[in-house]
Amino acid sequence: MVRKVFTLLPLLLCLQAMFVTAGNFPDPQSFGLVILKNYSPRAGVAPVIFDHWLHRSLFTCRLCHLDVGFAMEAGETKINAALNMQGVYCGACHDGKKTIGGKTIFAACAEQFSEEEVKRCARCHSWKKQGVREITFDAFTKKLPVGLGKNIDWEKAGEEGVIKPLDFLEGISVQYDTLQAQQDFSIASEADWASDVIFSHKKHALWNGCALCHPGIYASTKAGTVKYSMLQIFEGESCGVCHDKVAFSLFFCQKCHRNPV
């Protein structure tokens, strides 16, 4: 009996994982959405809705999460209006001066604003507001390749050159020689029904560099020293820090488990 239950264990864990994520398995538009409300409600403004899809099409992960310094956990950075106005966090780009694609980037937060400018606040402070966005998901992503689950295939978008994320921000980033990506490696799957994972350093380093993952997420660099479990990954550890939140969902098993057994 006990043995039978043990064979069921992976299934049970999967069910639990689904239970954990079931509430937030989102549509392509809301995937990677972050609500920022550390200070907004107290300051009498609507919480900020941050969409990863727009920003990730323009910038590498590394640029924002390492150079600009946004923490990888939602709500952890504790962004406030004063800091943005000083040119920290959102204000690093949203200063009303910097441009992207020939357009001036609107300034984030202001001490005083006219009634007309309230519209600008609502571009970010848009929780439960309709039609306040200048750039809509449907229009913006029309040209992007679609992958599994009708989600955007960002990897393909990058490969095809449909998106060219910026990796350098004047005044903030530092230019170093490009490092050769470390070799790909495989991570043996413990379950006999799941293929081994082939991890591509090249694909990951392209947008993340080194220090975004090491050592914060992956402390050890020696292959085989750390055992990863899907359980922990589903709960936002290791691969789960990005996958299922911003990077493709963990439910597309075979995107990682792709080494034929």
């Binding site: 264990l9 049970l12 639990q16 954990v20 310094g69 923490a71 990888m72 956990e73 952890e76 950075t77 504790k78 800091l83 920290v88 914060g216 997420i217 359980l231 922990q232 709960e235 936002g236 550890e237 820090v241």
Partner: peptide, 22 residues
């Protein structure tokens, strides 16, 4: 199994991606 579930849920609360000092 229950204990394991609880342990795993509590793990979800501890993150590595903390805010960097300003």
């Amino acid at each position: 199994l229950l204990l394991l579930l609880f342990a795993s849920l509590s793990l979800a609360l501890t993150g590595v991606k903390k805010r960097r000092p300003l």
